[in-house]
Amino acid sequence: MGIRYYAFAFDRDQTEQALSDPDNIMSDDPLADAWGLVPRRAMASTITGVQTLPQRDMLYLDKAWRHLQVLTGQLDDSAARPAYRMFEGEVTWTERGHRRWVRTLRPGDIPEIAHDLSAIGADELARLPELGFGHRDPQEEISYVGHFLGRARAFMTTLAEDGRGMVYTIG
């Protein structure tokens, strides 16, 4: 199945709760929420393909998070972009599998990240194949990542406008 990325929004008054226990903000079955599994946790389920939580409350980046992490991270000798803060992290591998990465971003962190995401242009996306992502045809790869970049931009813009924060997990 692979390592995936999920983010969940929270209201400003939930910031301390999100910092002290991020699991209280996140869904207990984010993949079911992202893929629209109905009914949840049943032995058999229908995949609707429609995210069950509103777009303003949840961001699912599938496996494109890794592309976005590299794209916003420290390239060459330059510093990481502000948007890297929403993609930073790695799972911890153990003999029993992996432990997920979890981070909370406060409402005050969001506007700078949202602004930086909006500044990522087509020329930067075009660099993806040279950054070592050759799983698909290069144009297909760019289109795949561009789709999820658009979702990330919309999510972060809405969070910034509403004064909300987010908890994300990679795992």
Rank of each mutant, 00 (worst) to 15 (best):
D13K: 13
Q14D: 12
Q17A: 14
Q17E: 14
Q17G: 07
L19W: 06
L19E: 10
S20G: 09
S20F: 06
N24P: 00
N24R: 15
M26F: 07
M26E: 07
S27V: 08
D28I: 14
P30F: 09
L31I: 12
A32E: 14
D33W: 06
W35Q: 10
P39L: 08
P39Q: 10
R40N: 09
R40G: 11
R40F: 04
R40V: 11
R41I: 01
R41H: 13
M43N: 15
M43P: 14
A44S: 14
S45E: 11
S45N: 10
T46P: 01
I47T: 09
I47S: 08
T48C: 04
T48V: 04
G49N: 02
V50Y: 03
L53W: 11
Q55F: 11
Q55M: 09
R56I: 14
R56V: 13
R56Y: 11
D57L: 14
M58P: 01
L59E: 06
L59R: 06
K63S: 13
W65I: 03
H67T: 08
V70R: 10
G73R: 03
L75G: 12
L75Y: 07
D76W: 12
D76P: 04
D77N: 13
S78V: 12
S78I: 10
A79M: 10
A80T: 08
R81M: 04
R81L: 05
P82N: 05
Y84I: 05
Y84W: 11
Y84C: 04
R85E: 07
M86V: 10
F87E: 02
F87I: 04
F87Q: 01
E88L: 04
G89S: 02
T92H: 08
R96Q: 15
G97P: 08
R99Q: 13
T104A: 04
L105C: 07
L105I: 09
R106M: 07
P107K: 06
G108M: 07
D109R: 02
D109A: 06
E112Q: 08
A114Y: 05
H115T: 14
S118Y: 05
S118D: 13
S118G: 11
